[in-house]
Amino acid sequence: MRRGLGARWRRVGLPAGCLAGFAEKVNAHKLVQKMMKDWTRNIVLDVTDSGSAWTLAVVDGKVAEVRAGRSEPAHVTLAAPEAVLAGIFEGKLNPAKEFSAGRLKFSGSSKDEMRLDAVVQYVWK
């Protein structure tokens, strides 16, 4: 399943490829899985420079699907240029710095914001 996700999306290019890699890491990380337990959300990524969108569908803590397009309801929305989103999900960019610099926008509850940031911290630690 995880391998399938990666193989399918890596062909499409960024950010899809790195999203699949991120999904694999999240699903394999024990502590992150403990943190994400019971968390079911649609995380929508708005790619501001290309106008495209992606959805990470999280079901009970597992990234069940990475799909092109915006899914409703969008519980959490991240909006940024493609390079920024790719850098964050590949662990090369610090999301806090991007957010503070205004290159990354977030919409959703503050609890979801903290949870997502914690997940990124642990996955790329």
Binding site: M35, N94, A96, F99, S100, K111, R115, A118, Q121
Partner: peptide, 21 residues
């Protein structure tokens, strides 16, 4: 946020794993 950006010690960027604060 300042700790996450590296402006303050990383010890101040710990997130509670149940309450996410």
């Amino acid at each position: 946020a300042m700790a996450r950006e590296g402006a303050l010690p990383p010890a101040l960027s710990k997130v509670h794993l149940t309450y996410f604060t």
